[in-house]
């Protein structure tokens, strides 16, 4: 186990370095700069601003200065929001994005696992087809359609829930959670069904049933443990995907999370913010993948 962790961490460093270098090169080669604005600034002002943000130094110098800063945990000031550091922006958005992602994954697990179990227990019946067809739909409907439809139905027509915000009004976290979680719920359902079908046909399940255990105990305690392995392996990448991919949902519902900052930074040519969040997201993805490998390995001895 320790070996697995160390090996993964060892490969993480070159990956991160590659991310930084490629992102650095890409942002600097993109046309347009952070200080281009509708009201054109004079060359003198532009020179002052470039000097202030070290953009007048040669590229290799900017790169090495940046790397040095990152090693000391300094991601620099945001170009777009002059009075804020990149770290501050990430730390403001992260808890919100994280909360949203956790709710979404819980929602996905609850709905997906229940539907998957149902399908696996009564394969090839309506109990199977209905949830699995719905799951397929869930995978196919993008959040840019699902989100506004939910808003229209529950926010505008039924007036049951707020149309946006995060923690401002009671119930405003429900629709974003559902919107973000649905596709993942659908994946969970299909993965659970597959995993469970495989496990339910094995001998130890027959033994458990023969011992006279209740069906509930057989399914939840004995079968689910093995049946959930594919779902758990999926959770790490899913969590990383939810964190890095919540941009659309954040925009639809006006949630002040990290995803919006990340995408807007690219449009604004906010060099430091693009780099900072890319590094941050890379770290997240690496960690979550590692975490889910570790969990999967500890649940399923076959993977060790």
């Amino acid at each position: 186990m320790l070996e697995l962790i160390l090996k993964r961490l060892g490969t993480a460093i070159p990956v991160l370095l590659a991310v930084i270098t490629l992102t650095f090169l890409m942002v600097h080669s993109a046309p347009g700069g952070p200080f281009d604005a509708e009201k054109a600034v004079t060359p003198e002002v532009l020179a002052k601003l470039n000097a202030k943000y070290n953009l007048d130094a040669p590229l290799w110098k900017q790169y090495s200065d940046y790397l040095l800063g990152v090693m000391q945990g300094d991601f620099g000031p945001s170009f777009r929001y002059p009075s804020r550091s990149v770290t501050e922006l990430i730390m403001t958005g992260l808890p919100i994005t994280f909360e949203l992602a956790v709710y979404a994954i819980l929602f996905a697990l609850m709905l997906g696992v229940s539907a998957g179990i149902l399908g696996a227990l009564k394969p090839n019946t309506a109990y199977d087809y209905l949830p699995m067809t719905t799951a397929m739909l869930g995978i196919c409907i993008p959040s840019i359609i699902l989100g506004p439809s939910l808003i229209l139905t529950f926010g505008i027509w039924l007036e049951l829930l707020p149309v946006g915000g995060w923690g401002d009004m009671p119930g405003d976290k429900i629709l974003p959670t559902i919107t973000l979680g649905t596709a993942y719920a659908a994946y969970c359902a299909r993965l659970t069904r597959g995993g469970m079908l495989e496990v339910l046909n094995q001998d130890f399940i027959r033994t458990a049933r023969a011992k006279g255990l209740s069906e509930f105990r057989v399914v939840i305690v004995h079968a689910l443990r093995g049946g959930l392995t594919p779902v758990i392996a999926f959770l790490g990448p899913a969590m990383a995907g939810l964190l890095a991919g919540s941009f659309v949902v954040e925009t639809i519902f006006g949630i002040p999370g990290l995803g919006r900052f990340y995408v807007e930074a690219a449009f604004n040519r906010d060099y430091t913010m693009i780099l900072g969040s890319s590094i941050f997201f890379s770290c997240l993805i690496i960690s979550f993948n590692l975490l889910s490998d570790v969990i999967a390995a500890s649940i399923n001895p076959k993977l060790r």
């Binding site: 506004p148 808003i151 926010g155 505008i156 007036e159 707020p162 149309v163 946006g164 915000g165 925009t251 639809i252 519902f253 006006g254």
Partner: peptide
Amino acid sequence: DNTSREDLMFRAGQ
């Protein structure tokens, strides 16, 4: 910055 969202917020009395 999303005009449709702003529109929805207006219609929802926010």
